[in-house]
């Protein structure tokens, strides 16, 4: 028999080497991503925790006090880093915009999948895609030139504030929540609908009692995802919120969010100063909130599998 072949069978070849190289290359690429994520946490946490460990700000004060002036110190000698106004601002715009966007998004999704799955879907699918694609600064600019004057004329005040932020975020998260809701509704097996219709239910009864109920986890995921987008949005909100680090007393008074203060402040503070560290604490808070949203989404998604 041919010994040459036998020998080759026991030796490394070009293919073995290419496989080895490929494994290394693809693994390194993956490792880069994991490293980036780990280092984001490390760097943001190490900066953000300095407020509490180096500058001796009390964590509870940070979360509950309302005076944000970390450049100067209070009577106890620790920086005045009360982040409550921003926390309230962020949650207010997030929750309000989600409350308005949810019915709109789910209704549109129902329209696209149940009422007019051919024509309506064909028109609205690209519409949502385009809306998702519009850059956030453009939303901010439109907010500034349309929403803020509208709020000013209708509700008084300067126009800047939670309400304007809510409007802008509502439009921004609407397409995302809609297209995720569409996916959730489409995942409902067809025989659910057929069974319901066959039992004599009307289309609306079927949608309301069968389709929406069985897709509830998917719809919830869509809404939470939209909220995490709204919570993390920086520039569009910053442009219309008014940027006053005060506890908002109504929806049309200037306010601020975690992201807006970060956007405005980071360039005006010296790296390593108490004022700068306090900003990093806000960034850390933002990071942790995005983790929470992520966790909630995973929890819901695990429950709602068909």
């Amino acid at each position: 028999m041919n010994d040459e072949i036998k020998e080759k069978l026991l030796k490394k070849s070009r293919a073995t080497r290419s496989e080895f190289r490929g494994r290394i290359i693809s693994f390194v690429c993956t490792a880069i991503i994991v490293t980036v994520v780990v280092s984001i946490f490390y760097f943001v946490a190490s900066k953000g925790l300095a407020t509490f460990f180096s500058n001796k700000v009390n964590l509870w004060d940070f979360l509950s006090k309302t005076i944000w002036n970390p450049g100067s110190t209070d009577s106890h000698g620790s920086p005045q880093a009360g982040a409550l106004p921003m926390i309230v601002g962020s949650f207010a715009v997030t929750i309000l915009s989600a409350v308005i966007a949810t019915p709109f998004a789910i209704a549109t999704a129902v329209f696209m999948t149940e009422i007019s799955p051919n024509k309506g879907y064909k028109i609205l699918q690209p519409v949502t895609e385009l809306l998702v694609g519009i850059p956030s600064v453009v939303y901010g600019f439109i907010g500034l030139s349309v929403v803020v004057p509208f709020v000013r004329h209708t509700f008084g005040g300067t126009g800047f504030g939670i309400l304007a932020g809510t409007f802008v975020l509502f439009v921004m998260i609407l397409p995302t929540v809609t297209s995720m809701s569409v996916d959730a509704l489409r995942a409902v097996p067809r025989y659910y609908r057929e069974a319901s219709l066959a039992l004599g239910a009307t289309r609306w009864q079927t949608i309301y009692k069968v389709v929406l109920r069985s897709s509830a986890p998917g719809l919830a995921t869509a809404v939470v995802f939209g909220m995490s987008r709204a919570f993390g949005e920086a520039l569009a909100v910053q442009m219309v919120i008014g940027n006053a680090a005060l506890l908002p007393h109504n929806l049309v008074s200037p306010a601020s969010t975690l992201t807006s203060v970060l956007t405005m402040g980071m360039g005006n503070t010296v790296m390593g100063s108490a004022a700068n560290n306090a900003l990093w604490s806000l960034a850390l808070l933002l990071l942790l909130m995005s983790l929470v949203f992520n966790l909630v989404i995973n929890k819901i998604a695990k429950r709602g599998k068909f």
């Binding site: 994991v34 994520v37 280092s39 984001i40 943001v44 993390g232 970060l262 990071l287 992520n294």
Partner: peptide, 23 residues
Amino acid sequence: VRTSIDILSSLPSIVVGLFGFLV
């Protein structure tokens, strides 16, 4: 790896920007 990618994709872009600024 999958969790990392999930987290990274949901991070607010301002946080990514600040990380980039720092690093």
